[in-house]
Structures are given as C-alpha cells and as structure tokens.
Write a protein that binds this DNA or RNA. Structure first.
Length: 404
RNA sequence: GGGGAGAUGCCGGAGUGGUCAAACGGACCAGACUGUAAAUCUGGCGCCUUCGGGCUGCGUAGGUUCGAUCCCUACUCUCCCCA
C-alpha cells in the first residue's frame, strides 16, 4: 500500500496526529526499507474488564496491524501500581502485584478478540522499570519541571480545586514516556485523555537522541448515558463479556444522538454509509429506533456471532415491546414451603433489603405469577414454582424444596 | 518548622446542641408514558418492624451534656498561607 493510503488508515477518525509530516516520513522509510513501524499502545491493567470504549483504539490498532506494522501491546504492570492520574479527579487506589498479574491475564484474553495475536508483541513495563536504579530515576526526574507537569489539565484542575496530588502521580507521565524510549516506538496510540502522557514520550525520546514518536489520539467514547465517558465504575459501560441480551439491551438504551458515533467508532461501516446514516437520522428519514436495533445487532454479531445477535434482538422485542418473559429466568430453591413476599424478595436478591422490597411492592413493581401484588405481607406458597417479577427486568422462579 | 481551614450518605454539597436518617443537586431504583433500558412526569432512595416504632449513622478514639453531625481533647488524613 502506498504511503498516502496508509496515512489515511492511520489518521481516519483520529482526533490528533502529531504530527502528520513525521508520520508520512516514517511510513515512507518503512516502505522503502521494508521495516514495519513499531506501534505502541499501553494498557493499564487496573480493571480486567474491557468495554466497547476500549475497542476504539484497539480497532485502530487492528487496522494498522493489517497494514503490516508491528503492534507492541504494553501492559503497564509497573505503572498500574501508581495509577494513571489522567481524567482522574482523585488519587487512584494502588493495586497489588498479584492483582495486577491476574488482571493482565484476563485483559489479554479479551484484547485478542480484536487484535491479531500472531502480529502483536506483548510487553510488561516492569521488565525495565523494575530495574531502574535510583540514579536513573533521578535523571529521569530532572528532565521535567513541576510547571510543565502542572500545566497539564488534570493536574491543574485538581490543584485549583484543592485536591491532593501525590508525587507518585507526578511521575506517571514520565514513566509512561520512558517506556517509549525503551521501546523506541515510532507511533503511540491512546485516547485523547492520554495526549499529555504521549507527548511526554515524544519529548523524552528526543532527550535520548531518538526520533520522536508520532502521537495519535482517538476520542473517548461516551457511555450509555450519552454524557460521560464509558467506564465501568460510572455504570454506563457495555462490556465485551456482557451476555448477548445485556449487550443488546445496553445498546438500545443509548441516546439517539450517539447512534452515528457508535457506528463510526465501533463498527466497520464505511464513510459513505456513515454519511448517509447521519443525514438520514438528521432529516428524520431514518427511524432512530430501527437504526439503533441495527447497531445493536451489528455489535452483538461482532462479539457473539450472528445467531446470538438475532436471538438477543428477538428476546429484546419480546420482553420490552410486548412485555413478555425473557428466555432465561434465574431459578431459586428455598427451604421454606411458604414465605412472606418481603422476605422472599430479599432472600433471592430481587431486592437489596427487606425495606427495599417493601417499598417496591408498595410502588407496584412486583408481580407473582403475572399478577400484581401490592400487599407486602402476602404469603407466597411455594409448593410449586412461582414466577416472581420485580421491576421491568428482574425475574426469578422460586420453589420450595419438597423434601430433604 | 510556623500559622490557618477542613473531613457529612454512592458523589457533590447544606446543616453548627434537641423539630436530623440529615436540605438541595446528580447517580441509582420503581411507576406512568413511549420507538427502547432514551426524553419527560411522579414516587422512592441506611437497616429492622406486628407500621406504633426500634437500631446504626455525619474521619477515628475518648470526653462534656438529660441529649451531640453540631461543644471539648487526642489522633489520622487533606487543603491554603508563610519559611
């Protein structure tokens, strides 16, 4: 592929490319010398669960991989012990080594659902950072000034808001940047929240007399609430490991304005089609509900296969359009042959506590065998399985144990 | 090293001796409505309850008081100013 064509793949849908001339030059040389570029991507294994937001950079890596370049997937096991302050308002909890090792493993399994394992090199930054001598550390620290670090948005905001920042966190960008020196990376990819860290890498490479890496940033995908970035802790994430049903439902819950964006960043839809979609939604020619279902189907197919996607869609329609029962309902066996409804809900976990159960019943959220039950003290006989529904999407089938 | 301010529920943030299980906003849950688990409106949102109440709770540990989130002491942590 020509330099221009490759450049287009690299830069399509990226927010920043710093800078394009450097990249062009690197690509030209790579082509001439038949030497793939080293593309660095760092992951912080603080949480082992990947969600759709993570797939935005991963998909880009995959595309770059297809061009024949070398992906270096860096697991920041050393830096995870510090906690990346990016986008963080508060100091992150630090993780222990064993936990990080465990996370890193499950993390990789998920990553290779998108990346080609054979063409990806996995490295751990503890490999070199663990061996950094105090002396090396000091010289690294001497490369950057407090003002330079503090100018970074996350820090300055926290500083202004009088929130604590630890010295350890100050070091984070330097260590991440040093990884680039160690790897002699040609390109580093990350979310826009990583921009500062990525640029530090550029600078440090220069100080080590290396050619600075090209920085590519991708947007941070909004979660199902349509406002904040997708994140498990914010509860607005759709996980790669989510069941087809949940994934489908989660996608159906995104606000309409996100439909085109999700198509763009999460699926292989080409530019022409994207434009048509955007235009169609804007003008009202296309029905958002329909497009959203198409999006959901498309993504569930990608991660679970077309069969599962069709099933999830049918299930969604059945449960939410016609108010029918879902496919799979959790079954419970309890020792008692009869129980009052409040205790029952709390016992099988449909309600968090008895008080919560009582409130839900009074609010008309609870059905027993498809009949609304508004009496908290109602006694449910469990001589045969009872279908309990609590709210729109929590169901359980409960029966008493006949003999033991 | 010296001086000052502060720590409240999932988060932000009021309260400054009883009327505080703690205003208000967000998140969350439920109901109505709908094209969805969207938007909007309504209700709920510590635990237990025979629905009368009972218990735990406002950084940690003690103390004062009939009574403390609110006062005192020590401790831990954070922020600011000066050095």
């Amino acid at each position: 592929m020509t330099v221009d064509e490759q450049l287009r793949v690299f830069c399509r849908d990226t927010v920043d490319c710093i800078d394009e001339a450097d990249l062009e030059q690197k690509l030209a040389r790579s082509l001439k010398e038949k030497k793939p570029l080293k593309i660095k991507y760092g992951a912080d294994p603080s949480s082992p669960h990947l969600h759709l937001g993570h797939t935005v950079p991963l998909r880009k890596l995959r595309a770059i991989q297809e061009l024949g370049h070398q992906i270096i997937f860096l697991i920041g096991d050393f830096t995870a012990r510090i906690g990346d302050p990016s986008q963080q308002y508060q100091t992150r909890p630090k993780l222990g080594r064993s936990e990080i090792a465990k996370n890193a493993k499950t993390y990789q399994e998920q990553v290779f659902r998108i990346l080609d394992r054979k063409r990806t090199k996995v490295v751990y930054n503890s490999a070199w950072l663990d061996n950094l001598k105090p002396d090396d550390f000091l010289s690294l620290m001497s490369q950057y000034t407090v003002a330079r670090i503090l100018e970074r948005d996350d820090f300055s905001r926290r500083y202004k808001d009088k929130k604590p920042i630890t010295l350890l966190e100050f070091m984070y960008p330097l260590l991440q940047g040093y990884d680039s020196v160690e790897l002699k990376s040609d390109v580093e990819l990350g979310g826009t929240d990583q921009k500062f860290n990525l640029l530090v890498g550029r600078e440090l490479q220069r100080l080590w007399n290396q050619e600075p890496q090209v920085v590519l940033t991708l947007p941070i995908l909004e979660g199902t609430d349509g406002e904040r970035k997708m994140s498990k802790s914010l509860g607005n994430a759709i996980g790669l490991e989510d069941t087809p049903t949940n994934m489908f439902g989660g996608l159906m819950s995104i606000p309409d304005k996100l439909i085109a964006r999700y198509f763009r960043y999460l699926t292989d839809t080409d530019e022409k089609e994207l434009k048509a979609l955007e235009g169609g939604l804007e003008s009202g020619k296309l029905h958002p509900r329909k497009e959203k279902a198409r999006l959901a189907n498309c993504l569930v197919s990608m991660y679970h296969g077309a069969g599962e996607a069709a099933r999830a869609e049918a299930e969604f329609d059945r449960v939410f359009k016609s108010g029918d029962l879902p496919d799979e309902i959790q079954e419970y066996r309890v020792k008692e042959m009869k129980m009052d409804l409040v205790s029952l809900l709390a016992k099988v976990g449909l309600a968090e506590s008895k008080g919560a159960a009582r409130r839900l019943i009074q609010q008309g959220a609870v059905e027993v065998d498809r009949r609304l039950e508004k009496e908290p003290t109602a006694v449910i006989l469990l001589n045969e399985p009872r279908l309990i529904r609590c709210g729109k999407r929590k169901f359980a089938r409960v029966s008493g144990v006949t003999h033991d």
